[in-house]
């Protein structure tokens, strides 16, 4: 069954691609084997992450991006991630509504995903879904997500190029950007640039990028005019100068989209040169393996906890001050650690 599915996906059957992503999302039995088999067929797609605050116009821009890539004869895969209710697990995934420019074009494969499950789970599922699209043969894979927290940042980080969308007049959003999204942006797009305040937002962003250059606390090691506070030479990835460009777009009128894609292509060219792409890939696989290890490990632990009669027993003892969380962790992990060490010595 999984054999057929992988074969069908590789031969370009849309239904098989859709079903594989479902299996990935559901973590259905056999999905690991599928992803393992797909891995060798990946590595050709250009992965682009799009993030920004709700209402920034991400979906509309993604729609226009997809249409423009299609005009150029490229195939496109899109994964749009929306939040799900932490209470019921339910979700309304609305990004598809904006995909009006690609009606009936199966070569734009658009998939909505909800942020179901745990923190690590979503980034694993997204990574795997990107692999499926990559193995299917998509030239461009776009990951679209609301930039609201660490979770989302982890997701877009696996893209080759990350674009952050900023709507005009978003003083507060700019504040939010400072909290972490700014650092991951390779390209900025001030969308809805026809609204008043766009110039000011561009100006604010420009200032912040300069600040980022001079700021030693982030890993750019520039010594531009703004630097000088510290004299440490930190060879960060941007050490020899990628300055995130700011592009003004009006996505719903298809303005600035070409310039935006140009900026993405420039960045792509920049990372491909001098082996930076390989370095990014290494970082990504490192993260991927670590995340997977953490998840698999925690699953093994869950199994052990269940075997010992569940966590509640320990919780009650902690509450009664008979033991403490550290002691419980030692007690549960102790045998595992011992077993690992014993096997290693043999």
């Amino acid at each position: 069954m999984t054999d057929d599915l992988v074969e069908e996906l590789l031969t370009g059957k849309h239904r098989a691609l859709a079903r594989v992503i479902t299996k990935i999302e559901n973590r259905q039995p056999g999905y690991r084997e599928i992803v393992s088999r797909l891995h060798e067929h990946t590595g050709t797609a250009d992965v682009i992450g799009i993030t920004g605050s709700p209402g920034a116009g991400k979906s509309t821009l993604v729609d226009k991006m997809a249409a423009t890539y299609r005009e150029r004869g490229l195939t496109v895969g899109v994964i749009a991630i929306d939040p799900s209710s932490p209470f019921t697990g339910g979700a309304v995934l609305g990004d598809r509504i904006r995909m009006g420019s690609n009606v009936g074009d199966m070569d734009v494969f658009f998939r909505s995903m909800s942020a179901r499950g745990s923190l690590g789970g979503l980034s694993t599922a997204t990574t795997d879904a990107v692999k499926a699209l990559d193995a299917f043969g998509k030239d461009k894979v776009i990951i679209e997500t609301v930039g609201a927290g660490q979770n989302e940042i982890d997701i877009v980080k696996m893209a080759d190029t990350v674009a952050v969308l900023v709507p005009p007049g978003s003083g507060d959003d700019v504040q939010m950007l400072k909290a972490g999204i700014l650092e991951i942006a390779d390209v900025f797009a001030v969308n809805k640039a026809d609204l008043t305040g766009a110039d000011r937002t561009v100006q604010e962003l420009r200032e912040m990028i300069q600040y980022r250059q001079g700021d030693v606390s982030v890993d750019a090691g520039h010594h531009g005019p703004g630097a000088g506070m510290e004299d440490l030479d930190k060879p960060g990835e941007d050490a020899d100068g990628w300055l995130p460009p700011i592009v003004e777009t009006v996505a719903n009128r298809d303005e600035g989209v070409d310039e935006f894609l140009e900026a993405l292509a420039d960045h792509r060219e920049y990372i491909v040169s001098a082996g930076r792409l390989a370095e990014r890939e290494r970082t990504r696989h490192r993260e991927e393996i670590r995340t997977l290890l953490r998840e698999d490990m925690s699953e093994l632990l869950e199994e052990e906890i269940d075997h010992r009669g569940g966590l509640d027993r320990y919780v009650e003892r902690v509450r009664e001050r008979e033991t403490d969380p550290y002691a419980v962790s030692d007690e549960l992990l102790g045998p595992l650690a011992e077993c690992v060490r014993r096997t290693r010595e043999e």
């Binding site: 995934l93 598809r96 009606v103």
Partner: peptide
Amino acid sequence: RDAGFEVIYSGLHRAPEEIVQATVQED
């Protein structure tokens, strides 16, 4: 949504092909 389902809403005035495309891709 409140029943715990994941809901994709198509938006208004969709052509049958769009619905087919969405059904297939979203599985």
